[in-house]
Each structure stands twice: as C-alpha cells, then as structure tokens.
C-alpha cells in the first residue's frame, strides 16, 4: 500500500502541538495570552538587521459617539499622539517629517470594501492626508485611494487599513490592504500564504514609511459579508512601520474578542499563515511577541491585549 505523505501539510494537530505558525498558532489555539512588550525598552522600529518592532496602540473613549459616529477631532488627536510616540518627537509636524518629505509623491492606501462595509473611516484618512500635506507635499502629489492608487509613481506609501477577520485570509489589516497592488489579487485568497510577496514588488518594495491602522470599529465575524453583531467599537488607532507586527497584534485582539463573544474558544479560520510567512520567508517584520514592543496609550477598558 502506498503511504500518503503529508508533505507541507499543516493540520489542526500541528497547531495544537504548537508546531505550526509558532506564537501565532498559540494565539489561535493556545490557552495562554502572548506577552508583548518583549523588545528592549529602547527598541527602534523594525529593520531586517535589527528585528525588533514598535507598535503604538492608542485608544480614546470619545473617539466614537452616539449612533457609532466617529469624532474626527479626537481621531486627529489620537493619530498625532501615536505618531509622536512612535517617532520620538514631541511635535506632530516634526514627527511626520520623519516619514514624508516635501518632494515625495505620497500614496495614502486605505481600505474601501463596499460589500463588507468595514472601511477605513474617513476621519482617519483625512487626518493622515492633512499631516502629509502639512509636511509640504502638494495636494496634487497626494493620492488617497484604495483601488487604482498609482503606487508606481509614488515615492512613499502610508498604509491606512481597517481591521477585519476575513473568511479567506483569516485576518485583513495592513498586509491584505496591499492586495490590489497585485495584478492578480485573487491568487492571494485561500491560501493567502504568499501575501507578503506583494510588499516586495519592485514598485512597492521599501516605500511604506508608516502604517496607521483604523481599529476604531473592527470586525471579528466569519464573513464574507458583515453581520452587525460581529462588529464592535474598540476606539483604537495603531501606528507602526512593521506590517507583520501590526497583523500579529490585531490578530490577538480579534481572537480575544471572538472568544469573549462566544464564551468559548472560537479560533479564527482559516489560520492566517501569511503572517508567519511574511516574517520567516519574506522577512517583512516580526510576528514574535518577544520582539514586539507594544506601547499602549490612553483608555484601557476592554483592551483585550
């Protein structure tokens, strides 16, 4: 009888044993919570040679009001505070000047998903565009778009995604936000393992200066379309320059929320194996909590991480 070879198969048992996706597997199937803030206190933003990452998470109770209305002024203040913290500058203009120059052509890549409705909020987009403009970039050289963003002519990209659990990729934040830079985006759906290669496309590679995540009202349900029961007001903004670390932190938050909602383990499925691949294969950042310095600012009620 011919013996079947598992080859590169990863089964649920591999996750249970902790043999698949490392700490991310533990986030989905493990009992313990990962410990972030493992990087050194003076950790600097990610580079391949210095694989430690900083992620700033800021939350404000006033960011969302009645009828889920987002307060644009509060959001601007949150983004400014987070970018200042991330850059180490006390002044917002100086902080943004670290990431965009007056002679840049800047793509502000946000998420617009009509059918699912978990968009990057307009207040977040406006706040980023405003600061990019104040850094001296002319309005004619700022492209704030989702589909059709002319990334090839951009010298800098600001990645501004929303956060949602996704029925084909597991989770969709900063990495899936670039999926439509590919001429064949559907090839990164189920499996999505190679999503990281989009960041290495010649017209994309090295251009991402900053990631500003709209985690004001994330989505944790199975999809593909939204069930309003599975959306919650988290009141957060996240800033980093490491897409893998961002994905890892968001995964842990969404997984915690799912478990809370069901009152039992409700693992995100399919497991977003593209995160581990982005770390180990494409070396875009780190997914290891021990190498991610998570700085939490502001409101901490139900922070889940």
């Amino acid at each position: 009888m011919k013996k079947r070879r598992a080859g590169r198969a990863f089964t649920r048992r591999d996750f249970i044993k902790g043999a698949a996706m490392g700490t991310l597997g533990m986030a989905l199937y493990g009992k313990g919570k990962p410990v972030f803030a493992g990087a050194k206190a003076d950790a600097v933003p990610f580079t391949a040679e210095n694989p430690e990452s900083v992620v700033v998470l800021i939350r404000n109770e006033r960011a969302i009001g009645a009828a889920d209305k987002v307060d644009a002024a509060v959001v601007q203040e949150m983004i400014d505070t987070a970018v200042k913290q991330f850059s180490g500058e006390a002044d917002a203009a100086k902080a943004w000047a670290k990431y965009v120059r007056a002679d840049d052509t800047v793509g502000v890549k946000f998420t617009r998903c009509d059918y699912m409705r978990v968009h990057t909020d307009q207040a977040v987009i406006d706040a980023v565009v405003k600061r990019v403009g104040e850094a001296g970039v002319g309005q004619d050289r700022i492209y704030a778009q989702d589909g059709g963003l002319p990334f090839a002519k951009c010298t800098a990209l600001i990645n501004v995604p929303s956060v949602k659990v996704h029925t084909l990729t597991g989770i969709a934040v900063s990495m899936k936000n670039y999926i439509n830079f590919s001429p064949a985006p559907s090839k990164y759906h189920a499996p999505s393992t190679n999503l990281g290669e989009i960041f290495l496309m010649p017209d994309v590679k090295g251009k991402t200066r900053l990631i500003v995540v709209d985690i004001l009202r994330p989505y944790f349900g199975p999809g593909p379309q939204i069930n309003p029961l599975h959306r919650w007001n988290y009141h957060g903004i996240m800033v980093s320059n490491d897409p893998v670390a961002v994905e890892s932190v968001c995964l842990n938050i969404c997984q915690a929320k799912r478990n809370l909602f069901k009152g039992e383990a409700w693992p995100i499925t399919p497991p977003p194996d593209f995160i581990a691949a982005a770390d180990k294969t494409y070396k875009l950042g780190t997914s290891d909590p021990a190498k991610i310095k998570l700085i939490k600012l502001g409101w901490d009620k139900d922070i889940l991480i």
């Binding site: 996750f15 029925t167 189920a190 199975p222 499925t269």
Partner: peptide, 15 residues
C-alpha cells in the same frame, strides 16, 4: 474545502 476552512480548520490541504 473553502467552506470547511471558513468554519473549522482541519488542515491546509484537502485531506
């Protein structure tokens, strides 16, 4: 498989 994976992850291949 795509539906199975959306509900319950058994493996990354079509066992």
């Amino acid at each position: 498989l795509i539906s199975l994976n959306a509900h319950y992850y058994l493996a990354n291949v079509n066992i």
